[in-house]
Design a protein around this nucleic acid. Structure first.
Length: 308
DNA sequence: AACTATGACAACCGCGAAATG
DNA sequence: GCATTTCGCGGTTGTCATAGT
C-alpha cells in the first residue's frame, strides 16, 4: 500500500513562487505562526500550494534570519570539516552556521565547495578494503545512502553532549559490502580517549591507496580540529566559536579533518594521525546503545576495525 | 546575434522518523 | 500495538542567468 500524497498535486500550484505568494505566506506566518500543521496552512493562508512546498519556501527562503550567498572562508572550513566528519548531514551542518539553511549549504557544497576540495576524481574503494587509520576524507565506501567519502552516518543528529565517549577498541576487518545493517563508522576516537595526531590519515582501499593529509592543528582539550580559526570570529552576528566549537566540543574526541586540510593553504604542518581503532555498528540502534552506555562501553564484539 | 555549456539555486520527490488517534 | 498522518531530511531535478564559442 502506497503512502497517501500530502496534497492533490494536480490542483495545487507548483514551480517558482511569485512575490505575491511570498507575501501571503509571510504575512500569514507572521500573524499566526506555522501552527504546527503545514498541511493545513496553505488552505488557511489562502494559498493554492502544497503544505510541503509552503514549509520549504518558508524555511529556505522567507524566514527573516536567512542569509544567502557570500560564504566566508571560515564557513567553508566548517562545512568541509563537518562534511568530512559526519557526511551529508546538511541539517546538522547548517545548524552550525547561523542564518544558513540545509538546502543552501547543500547547494553550496554541490556547486562550489565540492569542486574546490575535490578537484581530482577520487579513487573508489573496492568492496573489501582495509583501513589504515581511520578518519579521513575519501575513505568511506560508496553506499546507496551516502556519498563516497562521507564518513560516519552515526553521529547523532541531536549532537548529544553525552555522546562519543572513549572506551576500548577491538579489531577486525570489515567487509563494507556486507548486508544487514547500516555502515556505521564511529567517529574516530569514539572509543579512544586520546589519539595522537602524528601524520597522515592513511586509507588503504585496494587497489588504490589514498593519502589524505591531515593538518596538525587540534586543540588538545577537545580533539577537534579547528584550523586557523580566529578567536571569536564572527559569522552572521554570532561568534562562530560560540555557536560551533562549544557545541562540537561535546563530541569529546571526535575529530574533524579531511577535506579541510586541502583548503588550508596556510596550514603547512601535516603529520601522521594515528587512529588505533574505529568501530563498526550494524545499525544506529547498536551504536546508540553503545553510546548511551558509553562510559566504559565496548563496541559490539567483532565489529571494530583496526587501522594497521 | 545565435547557440551551447556551465553555474547557481529554487523547488520537488520520496523516504524514514515521530507524532497522533 | 497498530495504522495513519505529518514532519524533516537528503538526493535529485528544473529553471534561469551568464559566459564562452
Amino acid at each position: 500500500m502506497g503512502r497517501a500524497p500530502c496534497c492533490d498535486k494536480a490542483r495545487v500550484k507548483r514551480g517558482p513562487w511569485s512575490p505575491e505568494e511570498d507575501e501571503q505566506l509571510r504575512s500569514y506566518v507572521r500573524a499566526n505562526g506555522v501552527g504546527g500543521n503545514w498541511i493545513a496552512l496553505p488552505h488557511k493562508a489562502g494559498l493554492n500550494r502544497c503544505g510541503k512546498s509552503c514549509r520549504l519556501r518558508w524555511l529556505n527562503y522567507l524566514r527573516p534570519d536567512i542569509r544567502h550567498g557570500g560564504y566566508t572562508e571560515q564557513e567553508d572550513r566548517v562545512i568541509c570539516s563537518l562534511y568530512a566528519s559526519i557526511g551529508s548531514r546538511w541539517s546538522i551542518i547548517a545548524s552550525k552556521l547561523p542564518g544558513r539553511t540545509d538546502n543552501d549549504v547543500k547547494n553550496y557544497w554541490n556547486t562550489k565547495l565540492k569542486k574546490k576540495v575535490m578537484p581530482m576524481p577520487m579513487p573508489m574503494p573496492g568492496p573489501h578494503y582495509h583501513h589504515h587509520a581511520g578518519l579521513g576524507a575519501f575513505s568511506a565506501p560508496a553506499t546507496p545512502s551516502g556519498p563516497a567519502g562521507s564518513w560516519s552516518q552515526c553521529v547523532p543528529s541531536t549532537l548529544q553532549p553525552a555522546a562519543l565517549s572513549p572506551a576500548a577498541s577491538g579489531s577486525s576487518s570489515v567487509d563494507t559490502t556486507s548486508s544487514g545493517g547500516d555502515m556505521c563508522f564511529a567517529p574516530a576516537g569514539m572509543y579512544q580517549p586520546h589519539h595522537p595526531m602524528q601524520g597522515f590519515v592513511h586509507v588503504d582501499s585496494s587497489p588504490q591507496t589514498v593519502l589524505a593529509p591531515m593538518p596538525l592543528d587540534v586543540p588538545a582539550a577537545t580533539g577537534i580540529w579547528a584550523p586557523s580559526m580566529p578567536a571569536a570570529s564572527d559569522v552572521g552576528g554570532v561568534a562562530l566559536e560560540d555557536a560551533f566549537l562549544a557545541d562540537l566540543g561535546a563530541y569529546g574526541d571526535l575529530l574533524l579533518g579531511g577535506f579541510g586540510g586541502q583548503l588550508l593553504q596556510d596550514n603547512k604542518a601535516t603529520a601522521a594521525m594515528e587512529l588505533p581503532g574505529a568501530c563498526y555498528f550494524p545499525n544506529m540502534a547498536e551504536m546508540w546503545a553503545a553510546d548511551h552506555a558509553h562510559a566504559h562501553a565496548k563496541p559490539p564484539q567483532g565489529l571494530c576495525n583496526t587501522f594497521t
